[in-house]
Design a binder for these strands. Structure first.
Lengths: 225, 225
DNA sequence: AGGGGGCTTCAGGTTCCTCTCAGCGTCACT
DNA sequence: AGTGACGCTGAGAGGAACCTGAAGCCCCCT
């Protein structure tokens, strides 16, 4: 899951990014409206957190421009409560939810999750993926193998999520990198192998199949016996 | 999938080529406009990445010339943001999308994929090709012969894919070479024979017919029994 | 300040692809 | 039937891709 934060208060942006990263999202941050619009237009984000007061281009205009261009990515607006801007206006321009500053971090996370869940429903994707005896609950971020819960770290979960969403298909290492790590990541792609390795250990060895030269594939339901 | 990059900044061209190759595309690079037009005219590319500022012939003119000649290959234009050239003009001349430098690599890949997807849908290409008792699933990278799965390596799969996509037609050795390896490949063309040989062994001897002096042909549905 | 957990890098080891080569078979044409 | 061109295929070297244990770093919690 990739999130884009468009927020010019750098301290706030940074702390949000940090927290959400810890939740297992891949988070990109930009500090001005024009740049935000540009990045969001690429369509590779699952949600955009958009401040209203922005240099370059204000949040309403970014939001309106995105909708005008046909993007239906969920948008969570951040409004200051000083009354200069109006919540209703945000919703009018096509935002899906708004949050009035100051807000608690917990609330933000809850809203983010709610929006992601709603978006998922809209497109017919269930938040819970069942796959043989593997059950991945993307909303609750829990994984079960048979009756046993398996504890995964944020990154482990994110990698598994990618594989589960496209179960049966080959997912390339590059695609996993793109979705799980953010665009500033310049590290070793080997990191994907490391995570696959630990996932295999924590889950079951045969579950994630390596397709040499192509990527990884979550095996479709193992032959029932 | 074959991509052509027309870009005179060699460093940029090289790094794009490297990345896209890693994504599994066969990538060719040329550094001037005239050469780009010439290669693109051959019609063997699935997408063209076209810089605007080019020696020989600028990107707009290449693009316009291609469209004038009736080619509908997707074109992704690269524009510098210095304002000398205008994005709209790129789209006017028939480009399908544009990207303003500097851009992140991830963005480029996303756009490339989007364009290829759009094109693919239009032509109704399915990810699964069925051909008699041979089934080739390009998304999962799996091949079935009857009920049995056949394990293929990356190159074997790529060769078979070429034959399957054009089932019933003769595909020349040169075409296979170009699609599976890229045009910079300087090795022995015999390599194609080697791979056809192993494919026959792994699949069924009669499936791939040699057409002497012309190439190979995947036989249309074998006589049902 | 110390400890722990998660993230990342690194390096050694392993697997198994890829490509080349060479000899032989097969085909088409005379 | 002979001949040359073309195609087939087994063997092996070399290397790419992948796996995984270990260790360092950073952040957070105690």
């Amino acid at each position: 899951m990739r999130l884009l934060i468009v927020e010019d208060e750098k301290r706030l942006a940074l702390s949000l990014a940090k927290g959400l990263t810890a939740e297992g999202y891949a988070v990109d941050v930009v500090h001005d409206g024009r740049e935000g619009l540009y990045r969001a237009s690429e369509g590779s984000y699952d949600l955009v957190i958009l401040d209203i007061m922005l240099p370059g281009m204000n949040g309403y205009r970014v939001c309106a421009a995105l909708r005008a261009a046909g993007h239906d990515v969920p948008i969570l607006m951040l409004t200051a409560k000083d009354g200069e801007y109006d919540e209703a206006e945000g919703l009018d321009t096509g935002a899906d939810d708004y949050l009035t500053k100051p807000f608690s971090y917990v609330v933000l996370v809850a809203r983010v999750k709610a929006l992601l869940r709603r978006g998922g429903q809209g497109t017919g994707a269930s938040p819970v993926h069942v796959h043989g005896d593997l059950k991945v609950d993307t909303a609750a971020r829990r994984v079960f193998l048979g009756d046993d819960e398996v504890t995964l770290t944020a990154k482990e979960f994110a990698v598994l999520e990618q594989l589960v969403v496209r179960a049966g298909e080959v997912v390339s290492k590059a695609e996993i990198l793109e979705h799980v790590w953010d665009f500033a990541y310049e590290g070793d792609p080997n990191i994907v192998e490391v995570y696959v390795s630990t996932l295999r250990r924590k889950l079951r060895a045969g579950l994630i199949r390596t397709v040499r030269g192509a990527g990884y594939r979550l095996e479709r339901v193992e032959a029932a016996r």
